[in-house]
Design a protein around this nucleic acid. Structure first.
Lengths: 250, 250
DNA sequence: TTGATTATGATTATTTTTGATCGAATTAAC
DNA sequence: GTTAATTCGATCAAAAATAATCATAATCAA
């Protein structure tokens, strides 16, 4: 098999898998690892792929898909059901805020083909929506590496300059008394988004209901619509506080 | 059998199989391998096929879609050498701007362990530096999906709120007359960063020197230090304009 | 026919490709 | 941090393919 044929094959595998390792390639193609290494080096100098230790990556994937995948995968069926329901309310032409956090992140998959404008402080959301029909506006300011989001006063000020039709927010905990956040920064961003939008949706899986956290940052007045897979007694109380509740199942 | 007849046969086989090898052709056509080789050489110079070691391939099969050519990997050795040199000037405690673009992006790998603050409008830079010692500040505003960066008036305003000790900028082209950019947004960001920093470094591989582009956005006065792998006559002229030139090799 | 030109095949030297090996560099594990 | 395991790059040798050279056969013009 000639170099050209191998190159073709490697690019194909790369396109399919995103990354390849040398042992796997040597086996698949039927040549020695040395040869594969040479091929990769060659192709890398031509910009056809990105060489890594032990293999290669697709160039376009050089932008790491930000993986707080772990957290996002927890209870993802509930989160997906919630986000799917929420996405039904999003129409072409909408301008929406998307909060940081693993729940709101799952909204992305349902809005990729909508002609909307998304304003967000979440880096995973930006990455996820990069090659979609959506126009993205990134909120600026200090990057919080753990939450993979932009936080701080500059961020809050930035939010205040925009206005959206809908905000899709997350929270660390919610009780009949109010909303709880794990940090002040998170809270101030969430509040800022809520105050700058016509309608606020709170995306909230069952694990958050009835739970309190470090900081109670608001009563429930900022919430217009609660989307949740929870179905217990508190629901009625939420409704009595003029919150519309979307109950979903999965 | 004449050359024309053989050529016809070879093209037929090529169309059918996508690739051919010389031994197989010699057998099939009934001539010596030397002759086949001569035929292929002939046809290759006329662009009828692509010669490989031991055979030939259909031209169309050879090249994958253009999307593979990613800027970040093109000429990366020069870019790495440039960025490595530039990084030597970055010290703990510095606050630096990093411009968007494939060259400045390569600075990331050399500053991951420095205790500095980075202000950038480049999404790849943010992703690359996420799990590093660096504190990141993301410039906010509209996301340009092609350049993977934040551009626009909001972004420019955001930059104006910060001040850095050093700015590491890229450009689409540079001549003795000035700097060229591919878009107005790019230019305004670059200018904003330059005006808000004590020293501006221009990171510029050989392909940019002497090249002009869509928009001339400044003379050379904003550049303090030019880091490049170029080593031609213009260098002296740059120096005469009070630009310090770091020449690197790779 | 003759001489010249061209195409083909055989032979040989050169280049290219590939795989093996080993010290150095990088990464992972502790 | 240190150590162990991979992976890398360089060098060398073997095999295959190529280019160069030459000789022979076919073609063509005068």
């Amino acid at each position: 098999m000639t170099f050209q044929k191998r190159a073709h094959k490697i690019l194909e595998l790369l396109e399919e898998l995103g990354e390849v390792d040398i042992r796997q390639l040597a086996l698949e193609i039927g040549v020695s690892e040395v040869t594969v290494r040479r091929d990769l080096a060659n192709m890398a100098t031509n910009g056809l792929l990105y060489r890594t230790h032990g293999g290669a990556m697709k160039v376009s994937q050089l932008i790491k898909p930000v993986s707080f995948a772990n957290k996002a995968a927890v209870n993802f069926k509930a989160k997906d059901a919630i986000c799917k329901r929420a996405a039904e309310d999003i129409n072409d032409g909408d301008i929406i805020f998307i909060d940081c956090g693993s729940t709101a992140f799952r909204l992305c998959q349902f809005i990729k083909n909508k002609k909307i404008k998304v304003i967000t402080n979440s880096l995973p959301v930006v990455n996820e929506l990069q090659n979609s029909a959506v126009t993205i506006n990134m909120i600026g300011g200090e990057v919080d590496p753990i939450r993979q989001a932009i936080h701080g006063t500059i961020a809050t000020e930035h939010i205040a300059r925009y206005h959206a039709s809908k905000a899709f927010l997350g929270t660390d905990g919610i009780t009949c008394d109010g909303l709880y956040a794990g940090s002040e920064h998170e809270a101030s961003n969430t509040l800022a988004m809520a105050s700058q939008s016509d309608q606020t949706y709170l995306l909230c899986d069952v694990s958050k209901i009835g739970k309190t956290s470090y900081l109670k940052f608001d009563d429930l007045s900022i919430v217009d619509i609660l989307v949740t897979d929870y179905n217990g007694p508190e629901i009625i109380e939420f409704q009595s506080k003029e919150i519309l509740v979307y109950s979903v199942t999965h």
